[in-house]
Design a binder for these strands. Structure first.
Lengths: 329, 329
DNA sequence: TTGTACGCGTTATCAC
DNA sequence: GTGATAACGCGTACAA
């Protein structure tokens, strides 16, 4: 393996000078800079990021913490977009990344998780899919040992940023559109996880709509489960005009239930997953660009690791209808 | 951060003794071993894997190379299973893992990729979804710089193992079953990628069947594309008795085409992805346990890194019918 | 059986 | 502007 030492020798300078050039430090003459760069080219030198991480505490090593329940492939789709977006941006920014799933830390304490991350020289983490019950993660964040970016959960402090679409507004918009198109009055709203951050926001969006248009609404928690959404629909949809769901997966469950009941009710979802294209019916949904959300999260994490302050970032969303023809192309 | 030095001090022994205990070396008295372990417990010491990787060249750092085309969520589902299986086993075996996608290395040479991996102190790689055209990967493997485990491609040498189900047999079985159930004579077989390793194996399986049962078969390449499978079906299915597809996704495409043509033909797929449960019709397919394939791959990679020789590993498969009720539960 | 000392490849702090 | 040199945390010959 060609090391910085070889480069130094080849360029006829000291190791520390090479390091300065590589890391863009000042106080290096243009001439030596060029000599070093030439040597780097010649030897095809690539700095060893492991050594860099060991040497400097602020080398950008990042962990992706993913809360995947591994049950439905809708979740898979979203997580894959998250992962690939993050990895892509990380490579661009020259950050090292390790990918971790929550289930690897089952019945581990926050301290244990923190030590594991430190054992990997991790200084920044991005958290996907955190819920209010994830006490371990909350503690992990509040230790302040890591720079954090949290997706879809309102966590902001000096070393923590959060990022996501405006769920309240998005839920309002997609429901309003569907309500208007079908002239509905009585809403069945199948919400997500009880006490979920996103769930609460979306319920607020629905409340905005109900108030503004003078509608009625029954709210039930579907826990983001297709099966529960199905059962809720079977039980309550009959004397409602519309079923609004807090996720596409639940919307699919609701739709299947309606078909079984042999009644028509407009249904709308949330997320814009490709799976929607396979279920046979179109519906309105909110499209989130998970990959670019994740890319932005990685950029933000770099900001934090470079000394920036935590903040709240809102990403764009859009309303779409998904059909098979769009998916297959 | 608590380091090995602290542990040594706490246990009243030398650093190297701690290291020996940690790595299970002999020639340490039971008494000191216990003292060291106690100190480790007390201080909650977790060895820094970055330093370990830097120090010893054979520290197990592994890269997952994933060829995801990021277009369909069926692929997502499979890849997520691969990833989570690998990460899970790696954590169990105390191996560090970085996850990489092929598209990150677009228009990079094998040398460049190798250097990148070395810059990360990677010594072992697992390759998912390699095709015959991936020249860069072939070269990467043949450099011998890394221990490799390749999924579903026949690569075996001293430092390379391969692993996967018996595609020839599996394809034979699922097709045979469907043929028998429906008493078919004329097969339309929609194969995968032209010149794909798996594709060729599966075609052989079909040829076995055709020969044994004295059937006729038309083979067309669907490139694992749902759309192409659809078009092939529209074009050729009419005067065939059955459509056998080399992937579930193509089977879905074929089925949708048949519905549009308003004719019935039995269809069978390959992979056993959850998506199948959403398309409304049941069909026979081959179920592969991608997570456990990936776990076994990680175990095999560890064997290789510990000095084992490359070999060919065959995983089990099973025949299933997927229906919505199974998925949703 | 235990401890000393050096090396892994890099960064960073100083003298020069 | 440049170059020694001490960390970083660990593995491991080698000496004791």
């Amino acid at each position: 393996m060609v090391s910085i030492k070889d480069v130094a020798k080849c360029a006829g300078v000291a190791i520390s000078t090479v390091s300065k050039v590589l890391n863009g430090y000042p106080n290096v003459s243009e001439e030596t800079r060029q000599r070093v760069n030439k040597a780097v080219e010649e030897l095809n030198f690539v700095p060893n990021s492991v050594a860099a991480a060991l040497s400097s505490k602020q080398a950008g090593r990042v962990a992706l913490l993913i809360n995947s329940n591994m049950k439905t492939n809708a979740i898979d789709e979203i997580d894959m977009q998250y992962i690939s977006g993050a990895l892509n941006k990380a490579m661009e920014l020259n950050l090292d990344v390790i990918t971790l799933f929550f289930f690897m830390f089952q019945n581990k304490t926050a301290d244990e998780v923190a030590r594991y991350l430190q054992s990997q020289s991790i200084t920044g983490i991005i958290i996907y899919g955190m819920s209010k019950e994830d006490k371990v993660l909350h503690r992990l964040i509040s230790t302040g040992k890591f720079k954090c970016v949290v997706i879809d959960a309102p966590f902001v402090n000096v070393s923590t940023s959060c990022i996501g679409v405006d769920h309240r507004r998005a839920q309002y918009e997609v429901a309003a559109k569907t309500v208007m198109e079908n002239n509905c009055k009585r809403i069945l709203y199948i919400a997500g996880k009880r006490n979920g951050y996103v769930t609460d926001e979306r319920i607020r969006g629905m409340e905005d709509l109900v108030k503004e248009k003078n509608l009625t609404m029954l709210v039930r928690n579907g826990e983001f489960s297709e099966l529960q959404a199905r059962n809720i629909t079977l039980k309550y949809a009959k004397n409602k005009d519309i079923v609004v769901c807090a996720s596409d997966l639940m919307a699919i469950g609701a739709m299947k239930a309606l078909i079984q009941m042999d009644i028509f009710r407009p249904v709308c979802g949330f997320d814009g997953i490709i799976l929607m294209g396979y279920v046979g019916k179109q519906m309105n949904t909110v499209r989130q660009d998970f990959a670019s959300i994740s890319e932005s999260a990685m950029e933000e994490l770099q900001e934090l690791m470079n000394g920036g302050y935590g903040r709240n970032i809102v990403m764009k969303h859009s309303l779409v209808r998904m059909k098979y023809e769009d998916i297959i192309a």
